Computed example of a mutant assay.
Amino acid sequence: MTAHPRTRKSLAAATAATAALALAAGCASKTEDSSDAGDKDKKVFTVGYSQANNAEPYRAQLNKQLEYFAKKYDNLKLLPIADAKQDNARQVSQVQNFIQQKVDVLIVSPNEPDPLTPAVEQACQSKIPVIILDRDVKTDCYSSFIGGDNYQIGKQAGEAAVKALPDGGSVGEIRGLLSTDPQKQRHKGFMDALKGHDDIKVVEQREGKWLQPEGTKIMQQWLARGTKIDLVYAHNDPMAIGAQSAAAGAGAKGKDIKFIGIDGLAIPDGGIRAVQQGKLIGTYLYPTGAEEAAKTASELAAGKKVEKKQTLDTVEITKDNAEDIYKQYDMSQKVD
């Protein structure tokens, strides 16, 4: 990151401010806004964000929302978002690059926890406040974790499956990336909800890596080998929509299968619209956390204390409330 020229006097003032901030909150150095040189008190803090995979609709929407909400804070400058493309080595490199740039706040949505943990600890040791967004890491050396309650979402999905199969039935589960905590919690919650309902069996389980084409392929394989499936529980909407598309293309073999997803994005090809169109019987809002992340970054940059863990609420989305939920969360006029 290229520094702007400063006078010796302003440099001394900035250095003093940096020292005070570091003592107060362990933050990295402040950067003076060169576009407002007349305002000596106005500071702009750089924010680096490493995203796990921009190709996932949920994460693409998260990026748009974070860019939108970051602009609400005069003290933040969000650097171009780094896309790890589901590549752990790439993401570690991105985080290390942000550390070398001495960003004032670092946001990370880990692709997988184990590989990213040392990089997050490195940022922490460099006195850079770190926000972990959506997926956890195996260290508590960060400033704040922001994410949904994946266990509760999985449990609600399981309860919905029980209601959808009053006479029992067979379930196929398309799981996310197996090493990630959201996948583990969504699976555990779902299975716990099925306890005591011995007439409902999970007969198929596959890793879909959060990707719609994987959902399509997995469903095609299940149907091709004649597995009887009454309901598919997918750990996100793209995989559920992909599976539903495969079932719809299979004619009679797939026409009675029900589908449940997670994410509930208010976008034209998202889960809420899929519920309205009858492709899914339900989905669950998994908030992006972008608004909370921008607010937390601003507070951290200013040396304020923040909550160590911020758990975001979910909403069950069915045909009864899908239209209202879409209107409530539609940000198309803001983020496009």
Rank of each mutant, 00 (worst) to 15 (best):
N150Q: 14
V130L: 04
P118N: 09
C141F: 04
Q122N: 13
G148I: 09
K138N: 15
S143G: 11
N150G: 15
I146A: 08
S126C: 12
Q122R: 13
N150P: 11
Y142T: 07
P118E: 08
K127R: 12
I128G: 01
D136N: 13
D149T: 06
Q122T: 15
K138E: 14
S144G: 10
K127Q: 13
P129G: 11
T139Q: 05
N150I: 11
R135W: 07
L133K: 03
I128R: 00
P129S: 12
D140W: 02
C124A: 15
K138H: 14
I146K: 02
V137W: 04
V120W: 00
S126W: 08
S143L: 09
P118W: 07
D149L: 07
Y151L: 12
I132F: 06
Y151S: 11
D136G: 12
A119M: 10
S144P: 07
K138I: 10
N150D: 15
S143H: 07
C124Q: 14
I128V: 10
Y142W: 03
C141W: 01
D149S: 12
I132R: 02
V137E: 00
E121Y: 06
D149I: 02
D149V: 06
Y142R: 02
I128A: 03
Y151A: 11
I146Y: 08
G147K: 02
Q122H: 11
D134M: 08
D149R: 06
K127Y: 08
R135D: 10
G148E: 12
Q122D: 15
C124T: 14
K127T: 13
Q125V: 04
D149P: 03
E121A: 09
V120N: 03
C141V: 03
C124D: 15
E121H: 09
F145P: 00
Q122I: 10
Q122W: 04
L133E: 03
V137F: 00
S126N: 15
K138C: 11
Q122L: 12
K127H: 12
D134L: 10
D140M: 08
C141M: 13
G148Q: 13
S126T: 11
R135S: 11
T139E: 06
P118T: 09
A123E: 05
D149G: 08
G148A: 15
K138T: 13
F145S: 01
I131S: 00
P118K: 06
K138R: 13
G148M: 14
G147A: 07
D149W: 03
C141D: 14
A123F: 01
T139F: 05
D134T: 11
P129E: 09
S143Y: 07
G148P: 09
Y142P: 01
L133D: 05
I132W: 04
D134G: 02
E121W: 07
S143A: 15
G148R: 10
C141A: 14
V120H: 01
S144K: 04
S143V: 11
I131N: 02
T139R: 05
Q125Y: 06
P129W: 03
V137S: 02
